[in-house]
Design a binder for these strands. Structure first.
Length: 863
RNA sequence: GCGAGAGUGGCGGAAUUGGUAGACGCACUGGACUUAGGAUCCAGCUCUGGCGACAGAGUGGGAGUUCAAGUCUCCCCUCUCGCACCA
């Protein structure tokens, strides 16, 4: 073996070896237990970043570990290749999204291979290829047939910059999730998936995902947003029209003094028609359509509204309630109509104060007398009903039930539940996506593309129009088509494409049979591999991607293609990678090289001002705190890069990047390398010691035990707990104790135990630093392929301690400790403790009240 | 406001079931080897007092349960993340 550890050379060598031997190729094998390990596939943005490195390294450790444990491990990789960044890049560089995407796939594929990840590259997929999205189009047709996909005209979130519709999930705080521009409302015909049909099922099963972080399931539950209440019908005065409201507080209905409708509510213009309010209402509606009415900006908007000119009647007390349209009423929740109870709802209270509307108290708290004239805020807690006719005196919790029942018998309303979840709008007025396979015929209307005509291929030679608009609607050879039903030749092909979240909602099933050309996947392959045993990715996908994937699995089940309900058995959400940022008061974020440490702190090299160092922030180009994995791998190699990502923090926590920490990892590998070199002469030809520890003595006996204990510890840390940081530190400890051993000394078993220790270190390190382990494994004279070696097994009898270390406490305080033979009984231990010379001064002259002996561990003397 | 998580040395983090707080690593300090060391090896490293053996304090703060609490219970503080005019 080489004297010096040269990662560049050995990493290239073993990557070539794995590649040439298709080392990680797998097939279905009913005789072996399968394990499907999946990391969230990347968007081919151009370069891998450190977050990818962390994500894929965590997955690779588990994949390699499971392989060594004897599982048939499916570990695939592919590309989430459709989407807007490709279009943006195409505009910026005057190229084509396809060209840009395929070039990036090529580059990033090489970078991932440079990390030594154990993927079955023969299963690589890219969602922008017709072979892939053709089956998505096929599924769309199935969903259309089953009524799971439908078209409706509706208000949608529209981004002026991106010239496209955004799903609710893609609106963050009222802004476009990609460009940050304020979202406006626009009415368009859109395709939807009926995800709300599964709202209850998706919610219920959140509690049956024990392998998921609670954080994620609770976010999903929150997103689905189930609330219990009642739907109540209010009659419009002098009309047959009915306005239905959804409320969770039907107990306060006698206190409802007015009503608020969302500006988009269809009743608003009807009520205003012919009244003095007509133009004021029209102005308000117009104003609201330009205003951001969700998210953060909301705090800044005062509650405002306009009287519509109409009234409705409170069905329980006949009160004449003015109907307003108000900015805080949302068309997207409940029925878009709110029965306003100012005394018991803060929003309604504010609104009533502003517009001088009446406040009627209907719930009195115990021992207090609320007076509408002096109230400064709504009273939202429990109490007893007043001013509520027959319900006076009822506790409000009880009244919730009673009033709901009363409404139901009177045919005025019913108990109901409302979900926050909306149907999934999937239409995108974008080019770089999977075309929606339908045809618009002037005679036949919406016509599904016949299955035999799939795929509808996205023309890859069309260039984007100015502003990034989709060329599809202006490309006659795509748009113009013949109606498959009536044969009219002026039918129009749908030019919207699908949301990219559609592709990522089933890719994990495609991996099971990625080249299947008879369906979305081969059912036998899917039934062997699915569900995914372990899924790993960023928490940023906690709602969107994971909820859609769960939904799609239900769709596939409904259609009869799969028999399971949940796609991902266990989920690990890894933390992000952070690094300290440097900020200058005038120049903003600085690269590390743009500031200098000097007396009195760090200074900006541009202006000399004192800079702020040390805030840990997510790595990003704009914060100038990124670490380039390519540079790291060039400097230290893939193994060190992997090692640090695993060692610095447990997977689910944020990882603080530290340059000196990386060097520490590199130092450790060098330390093992040197030790192997030192020992090689002695252990190179020795047989590993496999016997019982009983025939060993002294240091070498201790070492042998330490090796077994380390196997035990590392196996538990990787397999049960996913604590790679402590697994690595256990191996470091073992290596440290190996440094204290002279393999050339003493007993005849020394060489064998040392050989065993070294082999074990390499096997335990194999999932973490695979190239390094392969190289030294080979240097030990072993055949290449440590990745397929069985995982080491510990001997139970070697885990037992030779001596017990007993801790002695007096009144719970540590006072002494002593070693004693393992056969010592509690009485002996107690006696030894009581006569311990360091214990005596603390118990002398005091009566011993009680002595607690914890088996083989501790004595506590209470005086 | 609602939901989730976190708070331990100078730093990242250990402590798996209530039982030795600070494993492992980084930084720092000292020593060895060396022409030299930013290489390597050995040692030290929570705080306070003491030359020292030792003693006292100590896991965000406060109470409690217990022979024993970083760990369990209650209250409070701080931070991070998610959702939020949700009727």
């Amino acid at each position: 073996m080489e004297e010096r550890y040269n990662p560049e050379q050995i990493e290239a060598k073993w990557q070539r070896y794995w590649d040439e031997n298709s080392a990680f190729r797998v097939d279905e094998d009913p005789g072996r237990k399968k394990y499907y390990l999946l990391e969230m596939f990347p968007y081919p943005s151009g370069n891998i970043h450190i977050g990818h490195v962390r994500n894929y390294t965590i997955g690779d450790v588990l994949a390699r570990y499971k392989t060594m444990q004897g599982f048939n491990v499916l570990h695939p990789m592919g590309w989430d290749a459709f989407g807007m960044p490709a279009e943006n890049a195409a505009i910026a560089n005057n190229t084509h999204p396809a060209k840009w995407t395929y070039a990036n796939i090529d580059t990033m594929g090489r970078q991932l291979k440079r990390l030594g990840l154990s993927y079955d590259w023969e299963r690589e997929i890219a969602t922008c290829r017709p072979e892939y999205y053709r089956w998505e189009q096929w599924l769309f047709l199935k969903m259309l047939e089953k009524g799971m996909a439908y078209r409706k005209e509706s208000y949608v979130n529209w981004c002026e910059d991106c010239q496209t519709v955004l799903a609710n999930e893609q609106v963050e705080a009222g802004m476009c999730w990609r460009c940050g521009r304020q979202v406006v409302q626009k009415k368009l015909w859109q395709w939807f998936f009926r995800i709300t049909d599964f709202a209850e099922d998706l919610l219920v099963y959140c509690d049956q995902l024990p392998g998921w972080p609670e954080k994620v399931t609770s976010m999903q539950k929150n997103w689905i947003g189930k609330s219990f209440g009642a739907e109540i019908r209010f009659r419009v005065e002098n009309s047959d029209e009915i306005i239905a409201v959804f409320t969770t507080r039907q107990d306060t209905i006698f206190g409802a003094t007015f009503m608020c409708l969302a500006p988009e509510h269809p009743m608003v213009p009807k009520l205003a028609e012919g009244t003095a309010q007509e133009s004021a209402v029209a102005d308000f509606i117009d104003k609201m359509s330009h205003q951001d009415r969700s998210g953060k900006a909301v705090d800044q908007y005062e509650k405002e509204g306009v009287f519509t000119g109409g009234y409705c009647i409170n069905p329980l007390n006949g009160r004449r309630m003015p109907v307003y349209t108000a900015n805080f009423a949302l068309m997207g929740y409940g029925t878009g109509a709110v029965m306003s109870v100012p005394a018991h709802d803060q929003r309604d209270f504010d609104f009533a104060k502003k517009y001088g509307l009446e406040i009627v108290v209907v719930i009195q708290p115990e021992g207090e007398q609320l007076d509408p004239k002096t109230m400064e805020a709504a009273y939202t807690d429990d109490g007893v009903l007043v001013n509520s006719g027959p319900f006076d005196g009822t506790p409000n919790r009880q009244a919730l039930e009673d009033i709901a029942a009363h409404l139901e018998t009177g045919g005025i309303g019913k108990k109901t539940v409302s979900y926050r979840l909306r149907d999934w709008g999937i239409s995108r007025q974008r080019y770089w996506g999977a075309p929606i396979p339908v045809i618009h015929c002037p005679d036949c209307g919406i016509v599904p593309v016949p299955e035999k005509d799939l795929p509808i291929v996205l023309p890859e030679d069309a260039m984007l129009l100015e502003g990034g608009r989709s060329p599809l609607s202006e490309l006659p050879r795509f748009k113009k088509t013949v109606c498959p039903i009536c044969g009219r030749n002026d039918a129009r092909r749908e030019t919207d494409t699908m949301d990219t979240f559609v592709e990522s909602s089933w890719y994990f099933e495609r991996y099971c049979s990625p080249r299947c050309d008879t369906g979305m996947f081969d059912p036998a392959a899917v039934s062997y591999w699915m569900p995914v045993d372990q899924y790993i990715g960023g928490v940023e996908h906690a709602i969107l991607h994971l909820l859609y994937s769960r939904y799609f699995t239900r769709v596939l089940r409904e259609i009869g293609l799969v028999s399971f309900k949940e796609p991902f058995d266990r989920l690990l959400t890894q933390g992000m990678v952070t690094k300290e940022s440097v900020t200058c008061p005038t120049h903003g974020y600085l690269f590390p090289t743009e500031s200098e440490k000097s007396e009195g702190g760090h200074r900006c090299l541009k202006c000399g001002a004192e800079v702020t160092v040390g805030r840990m922030e997510k790595m990003s180009k704009s914060k100038k705190n990124v670490v380039d994995p390519n540079e790291l791998m060039a400097q230290y190699g893939a193994d060190t890069t992997r090692l640090f990502c695993l060692f610095a923090a447990p997977p689910e926590r944020d990882l603080e990047w530290s340059e000196t920490g990386v060097e520490g990892g590199f130092r450790f590998l060098n330390r093992v390398w040197r030790l192997a070199g030192d020992w090689m002469e002695v252990i190179g030809s020795a047989a590993p010691y496999e016997g019982s520890p009983d025939s060993l003595t002294g240091d070498i006996r201790d070492l042998n035990k330490k090796v077994h204990q380390t196997i035990h510890k590392v196996t538990g840390d990787i397999g049960d707990r996913y604590r790679f940081n402590t697994a690595i530190s256990a191996v470091m400890e073992l290596v440290n104790s190996m440094y204290g051993i002279d393999p050339r000394s003493g007993a005849s078993e020394v060489a064998g135990v040392c050989r065993f220790a070294m082999e074990t270190v390499l096997l335990l390190l194999a999932p973490f630093v695979p190239h390094f382990s392969e190289e030294l494994w080979e240097a030990l004279g072993k055949p290449a392929g440590i990745y397929r070696q069985p995982w080491p097994v510990y001997r139970e009898d070697a885990l037992e301690k030779d001596e017990l270390l007993i801790v002695v406490q007096v009144n719970g305080k540590l006072r002494s400790r002593f070693s004693i033979g393992t056969d010592a009984d509690d009485a002996t231990i107690k006696k030894t403790a009581l006569s311990d010379e360091r214990v005596i001064p603390f118990i002398e002259g005091k009566p011993v009240k009680k002595v607690i002996v914890v088996k083989k561990k501790l004595v506590n003397i209470v005086v």
